[in-house]
Write a protein that binds this DNA or RNA. Structure first.
Length: 554
RNA sequence: GGCCCGUUGGUCAAGAGGUUAAGACGACGCCCUUUCACGGCGUAAUCAUGGGUUCAAUUCCCGUACGGGUCACCA
């Protein structure tokens, strides 16, 4: 007896009235300029926001916005078991922190855009329209296999060294159920999933990937699941329906999806839709000593458990500026970015012509040294005001006490941030907002503390004598040259070499060099020997603070 | 195991059938300098491996090794 597919589809989806063409009308092709890309990220809300999420977001954002297209956020929450309370908010906040701008999609205040809803659980009815259509066309069927039966099949397949999964003879019993049998099972309340009817043959498919070129692989032959027993689609079905109806032109996702390509290609084909351009990105890797042979290094996938730098929250907590992360990701993504940046130090990254074909196919390593270098450069390029604003807003969230301090002395802080900025070669003192708190601490009495050892510079008697003389001759109004002349004079008086080279050549002739003298000043004023220009620092601190700090040593 | 993807210095990488095989980070050295930093200059260091194709291959093809991914009612 031949199955009446139409009747089956009615039986399975009695409430679905809309037709595929209704959906097409409701979500028509977008009116966009030629060549505009529509991209998205589709993270699942597990509470953990991954660097990879940002990595793909950067690609999608650039592609869309540099082509006059649309970039949107879709929440892929089809897995009920992994759902975490508040995860969507965490995700949206993290994306906001890193300055990822969405034109459409899920947002804090609700969804925005005409192609929504943008959360897959709310799209159940939409998926069912196409599910029903597939059943009606005889391409999908209800499967009543229980977890135990599935397990038994898998064991048998393992024993026979067959491919695991539901196909061929394993699919047959459920595929050939009659309408009456299905009805009976449904009435008995048996739970079911909707499976796609895979076709067993030796065909191969070729998928073109914008990053990797052509990928050739066997076509799909599995009866994979379209709808789970709760009526929610699997990733595969949701991806195809959503990216078509939301009119994505490019699908950017991790390379772990390559192996499910045959399913997706198949669905696009039977639904009569044009496939988007796939861009499968490389997995983020990390290098580590091999556990068995520690002398060797081993490359491995970043892991959630072992690698804190994989979580976006790490960058937030460390106060790594969003601009730094963008610069870093862009250098990873397009190897010519650094070159471009060197040639265009003042342009915003949005001016960089991003290209998919320049992307690397092998796993990029997250190199924190490199990140540090980029961080210093990026922050050195910012003007003091931008640094002030960004630093303060980080402190507001992660170091409230420090934020209060900054706000208590806004002018001094601004002046301090300008130290070393004049001239063509700015100092690169700040790499993260967290470290900025440490670096800047000497500008405030509340946090000032002597860290380096004064006794390494000169013996105590000499210290006292130096500070006494220095204070005597100190005139806060001196300009840099006049000030330094005085320092040189005292250096000579105390029997230190004015030129460090002289001391190096004949150390026995001097008590030390001007290096020791200026180090004493640095330590007294800033607490450490590694500090910006003394004259500039003195003027940021003001005469009273300078005298007070120096007097401690007399 | 099947199926996919990959392999250029310590790291990120550019590159093309013939190159002195770019550049950046890191390391080291020198220079500049009132310290540190910044900056400048320089040094060491790479085409996984075996076979083909070719006058010529790191580049094209095949195999091997190694690494990675995936084989769910997870994404």
């Amino acid at each position: 007896m031949i199955m009446d597919h139409k009747a089956l589809s009615q039986l399975l989806f009695p409430d679905v009235k809309a037709l595929p063409e209704d959906m097409e009308k409701q979500f028509p092709p977008r009116q966009l300029p030629e060549g505009a890309c529509v991209t998205r990220i589709g993270p699942s809300p597990t509470g953990f926001v991954h660097l990879g999420n940002l990595y793909n977001a950067v690609i999608g954002e650039r592609l869309a916005h540099q082509s006059g297209g649309v970039f949107y956020l879709r929440i892929e929450d089809t897995d009920d078991k992994r759902k975490v309370e508040g995860a969507v908010e965490t995700l949206i906040n993290a994306m906001a922190y890193f300055g990822v701008r969405f034109d459409e999609g899920a947002a804090e205040e609700g969804d925005k855009g005409a192609y929504g809803p943008y959360r897959q659980r709310q799209r159940k009815d939409i998926y069912h329209v196409f599910a029903k259509d597939l059943v009606e066309r005889g391409l999908a069927y209800p499967c009543f296999l229980t977890a135990e039966e599935l397990e038994a099949i898998r064991e048998e397949q393992m024993a026979n060294k067959e491919d695991p999964g539901i196909y061929g003879r394993y699919a047959e019993p459920n595929r050939s159920l009659t309408l009456e049998e299905v009805r009976k099972k449904l009435d008995a309340g048996e739970s079911w999933v909707l499976r796609y009817k895979g076709e067993m043959n030796d065909e191969r498919i070729t998928v073109s990937d914008a990053v990797r070129g052509n990928i050739e692989m066997p076509r799909n032959f599995m009866d994979f699941v379209l709808l789970k027993s709760d009526g929610i689609p699997t990733y595969h079905f949701a991806h195809v329906v959503d990216d078509h109806l939301m009119r994505s032109t490019h699908v950017i996702r991790g390379e772990e999806w390559i192996s499910s390509l045959p399913m997706h290609v198949e669905l696009f084909k039977v639904l009569g839709w044009e496939q988007p351009v796939y861009c499968h990105t490389a997995t983020l890797m990390k290098v580590e000593p091999d556990e068995e042979d520690p002398s060797k290094l081993k490359k491995r996938k970043l892991s959630k458990r072992k690698d804190p730098e994989l979580a976006l929250s790490y960058y937030q907590q460390e106060g790594i500026s969003k601009d730094v992360v963008w610069e870093f990701l862009l250098t990873l993504l397009n190897s010519n970015y650094e070159e471009w940046r060197t040639a265009n130090p003042d342009k915003p990254y949005t001016d960089f012509p991003y290209s998919i074909s320049k992307m690397s196919v092998s796993g990029a390593l997250v190199d924190l040294d490199k990140l540090r270098d980029i961080a210093k450069d990026t922050i050195a390029r910012m003007d003091a005001e931008t640094v002030y604003k960004n630093w303060l807003s980080w402190c507001e969230e992660y170091d409230k006490g420090y934020a209060d301090l900054i706000k208590k002395y806004p002018e001094r802080t601004m002046a301090a941030l300008n130290v070393g900025k004049n001239g063509k070669k700015p100092r690169k003192d700040i790499e993260t907002w967290k470290q900025a708190c440490e670096f800047m601490s000497f500008y405030y009495d509340e946090t000032f503390k002597v860290q380096d050892d004064m006794n390494e510079q000169a013996e105590e008697a000499v210290q006292k004598e130096f500070f006494r003389k220095y204070l005597e001759s100190y005139d806060h109004a001196d300009d840099s040259a006049a000030w330094f002349d005085k320092v040189k004079a005292i250096t000579e008086e105390l029997g230190f070499a004015v030129k460090p080279k002289d001391f190096k050549k004949e150390p026995e002739k001097y008590k030390g060099s001007i290096v020791h003298i200026t180090n004493m000043l640095r330590i007294a004023l800033t607490g450490r020997a590694n500090a910006p220009d003394i004259h500039e620092v003195s003027h940021v601190l003001g005469e009273d603070m300078v005298r007070a700090r120096l007097s401690e040593w007399v």
